[in-house]
């Protein structure tokens, strides 16, 4: 089974900072060896100035400040037995995250929440949305959770939401890779109101049986990897029920596939995975349906 050896940690030192890195140490059990730190200097901030053209001094100062901060973090990582690398680039954050993730061959991208939003809600920033739309890698929308002053292991109790699609299959592969860092995995499927409206009572019974069978197979596979696992078949609204299930079972992380519905299609039809990522109180890992990198 593939391991999660390398992760990309893009930061502007506001949305994602060192406590997040500490929380990710837990991935060592899943094979984590190296963290690549990325700081992107937005080109519009330092370039196209009518007088100074490209403001090299400002750019160099920003890069140096980032390097010093990363150097400090890297010391901590060495103490933890992890390798690290810091990259500072000028460009657009979205493009550079994709470019560096391809160049460094990372296994997962970490993304933060946007500032200045209510604490009860994560707002997926333009950069996160852009990365989600274009990457083939899993993206973890990180939510920092502490209990009694201690950072909670975000991978301890995983909720895996599946609709049995090929993308959900890719998400399940990721869950198996995360399994060594977890103590329990809840496999969840939500039968929606639409399913109930479209089918007869017998057909619904059949569907329930089919879903339970598929989830049962996943549970067995996870148990085979030495992870405790349970299946939960729910009925109602995907976003509401996944979030409710997350609360009921005190899960620390949600993993689900995202079908690539973005922009106008998302505004019109909605995207359950994006809503879950926005409203969840815990971290959410979204696995895209794309298979290849653009870079």
């Amino acid at each position: 089974m593939m391991k999660i050896k390398k992760l990309l940690f893009p930061t502007n030192f506001e949305e994602l900072s060192f406590p997040t890195v500490e929380a990710l140490y837990k991935l060592k059990s899943s094979g984590l060896e190296e963290i690549v730190f990325l700081f992107v200097i937005d080109r519009d901030e330092v370039a196209f100035n009518l007088t100074t053209g490209f403001d090299k001094k400002l750019c160099d100062d920003m890069a140096e400040a980032a390097r010093l901060r990363f150097a400090d973090w890297e010391k901590e990582l060495t103490r933890e037995g992890l390798k690290s690398k810091s990259v500072v680039e000028v460009g657009t954050p979205e493009g550079k995250i994709l470019e560096v993730s391809a160049r460094e061959k990372v296994d997962i991208i970490i993304s933060g929440r946007r500032r200045h939003v209510p604490p009860t809600m994560i707002y997926l920033s333009g950069t996160t949305m852009g990365v989600l739309r274009r990457t083939h890698l899993p993206v973890m929308v990180y939510r920092h959770v502490e209990e009694c002053g201690l950072v909670v292991n975000p991978f301890m109790e995983i909720l895996f939401a599946t609709d049995f699609s090929p993308t959900a299959g890719r998400a399940f592969e990721l869950v198996k890779r995360l399994a060594p860092s977890a103590s329990n995995v809840h496999v969840v499927h939500v039968m929606t109101d639409r399913d109930f409206k479209r089918h007869s009572q017998e057909e619904i019974k059949e569907e329930e049986k089919r879903c339970l069978g598929l989830m049962g197979a996943m549970v067995e596979e996870l148990k085979g990897l030495g992870i405790d696992s349970q299946a939960h078949l729910l009925a109602g609204h995907t976003v509401t029920d996944v979030l409710a299930c997350c609360k009921d079972h005190r899960t620390t992380c949600i993993v689900m596939g995202t079908t690539g519905r973005h922009g106008i299609a998302e505004a019109w039809l909605g995207s359950a995975s994006h809503r879950v990522a926005e409203q969840s109180m815990v971290s959410v890992i979204l696995v895209p349906d794309k298979k290849e990198s653009e870079y």
Binding site: R43, D44, A47, F48, G91, T92, G95, L98, E99, R134, E294, Y295
Partner: peptide
């Protein structure tokens, strides 16, 4: 047009 082409062109809306 693939967005990656504009990114490689270092395209910016700023100007």
């Amino acid at each position: 047009t693939k967005k990656v082409l504009r990114e490689k062109n270092e395209f910016s809306w700023f100007p």
